[in-house]
Computed example of a mutant assay.
Amino acid sequence: MTRPALPRLLRLPSSAGRVRPGLTVAAVAGIAGLMFAASAQLASGSSGLRHPTDLAELVGAEAQRVDQLTETVEALRLEVDDLAAAAPTGTTEDPALVRLEGMRVGSVPVTGPGLRVQLDDAPASNISIPNVTVDDLVVHQQDLQHVINALWAGGAEAMTLQGERVIMTSAFRCSGNILLLHGRVFSPPYVVEAVGDPTALRAALAASPGVQRYLGWVQVVGLGWSVRDVDALELPAYTGSTELRFAELPPGTDPLR
């Protein structure tokens, strides 16, 4: 294919002043020097680390930093637990109540029967289905929220999303088909595990209008969906911060009920 001719350059009116060549070269050289100096200064950070140059690298770097901080927090938490166990106490607490409190705040691991629910994006080839858009083929934030809320309503004692313990202060956000939870990044398939009575949990999923809407899209575009009974789920303890800075329980509310 023949390239089209380039457009002719516009000519400046004869009255336009000309810049002296020597002055132009000097100005360009000065600007180039400043640019090289700024570039060298940015490249020579005190840490000597390579800085991310795009969003993907930035997310990867931050995820690695979160992993390192999580390991540090876990080590400190174990140290605090050891010190607390060794410290003398003048009161005797009910072990069952302590266990229940730990389950509610997610500070202790939980093992027991329950459900494993998995949601996944539909095959990309299903975009050929009439009136279907790319947005219809991915699992959305509200889909996960409907599943999690239904399982809590069904009496779940403890829950994880992508292996991360879900507690009352947990918040997650979806961007496209990327899930952000507790400072970490996850991709589908999304797995929710809940310890509780499997029959009651299944009934709660069936009673949820939001879950039923998702199942409708499962039939139309092939979104992934599976529910399995598990005899012995092992859910880890939550290792992040549980401090509430901008929220409080309403008066008369029992957090253990």
Rank of each mutant, 00 (worst) to 15 (best):
R184P: 00
P251R: 09
L42T: 09
S39H: 12
L42K: 12
F246V: 13
T24Y: 11
L201G: 07
V73A: 11
A32V: 12
T89Q: 12
A84E: 11
L97W: 04
A122M: 05
A40P: 10
A124R: 06
M35N: 13
T169N: 09
P7K: 03
M35I: 12
R104A: 13
S46A: 15
M103W: 13
V98D: 06
G60R: 03
V191L: 07
A26E: 04
L256F: 12
D135R: 08
G183Q: 02
L34V: 08
A86C: 03
S187W: 01
T242E: 13
D81A: 10
W152A: 06
A206T: 04
G30R: 06
G30S: 03
A156C: 02
T133C: 05
A206D: 15
V192Q: 03
D197R: 11
T160Q: 09
A200R: 06
E101G: 07
L161A: 08
V230D: 10
T253Y: 14
S107M: 02
E164W: 05
V66C: 03
A38V: 01
Q142M: 15
L6Y: 10
T169H: 07
G17N: 11
E164N: 07
E234Y: 10
D120N: 02
E93L: 12
V134E: 13
P251E: 11
L69P: 07
G33Y: 06
V195D: 04
R20D: 15
H140M: 12
P251H: 08
R20S: 15
V66K: 04
V138H: 08
Y190G: 04
T160R: 07
P95D: 01
L6I: 11
P7R: 04
D136N: 09
R173N: 07
S241V: 08
A86Q: 08
W225M: 02
P209N: 11
Q68L: 13
A247S: 08
A85Y: 12
G114L: 06
V221L: 00
L42I: 12
S128H: 08
N126R: 09
G33A: 11
N149H: 14
E101R: 06
R165F: 00
T72W: 14
Q162H: 09
A96K: 05
R245S: 14
R173S: 13
T160H: 08
L58Y: 13
Q68Y: 14
E74A: 15
V28G: 02
M103E: 15
R245Q: 14
V80A: 14
